[in-house]
Amino acid sequence: MTTAAIGSAQGEIEFGLNSFGEIATDPSGRVLSDAETVRLIIEEAELAEPVGVDSFSIGEHYRTEMMDSANQVILAAIAGRTERIRLGTSVTVLSTQDPVRLYAEAATLDAASNGRAQLILGRASSPESFPLFGFDMADYETLFEEKLDLFVKLLRDQPVSWSGTVRSALTEQYVKPAIEPGAIPTWVGVGGSPQSVVRAARYGLPLMLAIIGGRPSRFAPLVDLYRRALGELGHPALPVGEHSLGLLAATDDEARETHWPYWRRTMEKIGRERGFHPPTRSSYDADVRTGALFVGSPQSVAPRIADAIRDLGLSRFDLKYDILHLPADLRARSIELYGREVIPRVRELLAVQPEPGEVIGHV
């Protein structure tokens, strides 16, 4: 499977932005409507292209505060207003999608964007799509495994013959529009499950790590497992990426004081739903200093991203920049700082080979 970026030691790193379509506010504090938020995402992708961001990806959720459920439709709108930036999903919930329809949509987006489409496939960390589309969470593993098998076949070798338990069989079936085998970079997103890592290796697909807390380096054993599995299965080396959250501002204090109230409210809500304790300010500050929250000034955030890329041997780094009710102007400023200041600085830091034991970029 081809991909846009091959290994931090072998080629250019891809730097992307992720949106989950979270509803924003205007500078006065007015909550934007659902439609205004969809249009805002399109405008933000337009902004990301000229400031130097390589890719723009949109999630798939079915929550009242997230407007990303029809992500391929939004990406198609972005395709008509941009020329270079790659357009992808920061997650496609394959378990509750039909692989044939997904292939047709992705291939159509690829044609409309002149070859800029890419995908990240996931099992879903939130369960809302299962009852919405009539699926049983008890079939969580079977749904993803079988649908991934069919989708990979559609991407790689048509006509397709396939049979399984989760949908009707296909016999010598072509699905249009046609693409070259492997033309749409397709990653498997994982949150920390070794079984998911090995599955990605088994299908010969790049690995995207969703790292939202703790030190990114703690995922190194999973990366090692993935690379060992690729070798044992006879696959070539494939890219590894990281998806993490953050916010850029002129100073560290401004970024943290801006981001913390929104982060606290978001995590308190998720905590109530899933039964875990919300973050304290001290745990938040620890994740900002050394963990997977990339919140701060460009001068502070860039070295931490460079460290994560080195520690895990990444080929791609995606920053999720939106969070519920964050004002649109602060979202735009974060995008600009990421593209104009953070990405160039990370590239500079990665071009310097540190001596053993040396830390590059930190004061």
Rank of each mutant, 00 (worst) to 15 (best):
L17Q: 02
R316S: 14
L109K: 05
A169Y: 01
D287H: 08
N114G: 13
V197T: 11
V240T: 12
I85C: 09
H61S: 04
A306N: 04
A117F: 05
E12W: 07
L312N: 00
S125G: 13
T92H: 07
S196Y: 03
V342R: 02
T82K: 08
P127G: 08
R274P: 07
R30E: 07
W187N: 11
R101M: 14
R63D: 08
D318V: 02
S297W: 04
R30N: 12
V53M: 00
G234K: 13
T251C: 06
V160H: 01
N71F: 12
S55Y: 05
G29Y: 05
A302N: 01
G241W: 10
F135Y: 15
P131V: 13
A306H: 05
P127Y: 15
L222V: 12
S161G: 01
D139S: 08
R289P: 05
A220M: 13
S283N: 14
V352A: 06
R228N: 14
A70T: 10
P298K: 04
G115H: 06
G246N: 04
V352K: 14
G7H: 11
L245G: 07
F151M: 01
G88H: 13
A255N: 09
P194F: 10
S297P: 00
I335C: 02
Q97M: 14
R304D: 03
G29M: 02
T290Y: 01
D329R: 10
H235D: 01
L230K: 03
V363S: 14
P194G: 14
E46P: 03
Y321D: 02
F294V: 06
A302G: 10
I343S: 00
L247T: 11
R347L: 02
I179Y: 09
G134R: 12
L230C: 08
A249L: 13
A24M: 04
T251L: 07
A351T: 04
D311N: 10
R289A: 14
R156M: 11
R256K: 15
D322Q: 01
H61N: 12
D329N: 11
E172H: 14
R116Y: 03
F20W: 08
R345G: 02
D285N: 09
G189E: 06
R218E: 15
D149C: 06
P216R: 06
Y321Q: 02
L205R: 10
V301L: 05
E83A: 15
L143D: 03
Y284L: 02
W263I: 10
V152F: 00
R228W: 13
Y321T: 07
V190N: 11
A45E: 10
V93I: 14
A24Q: 12
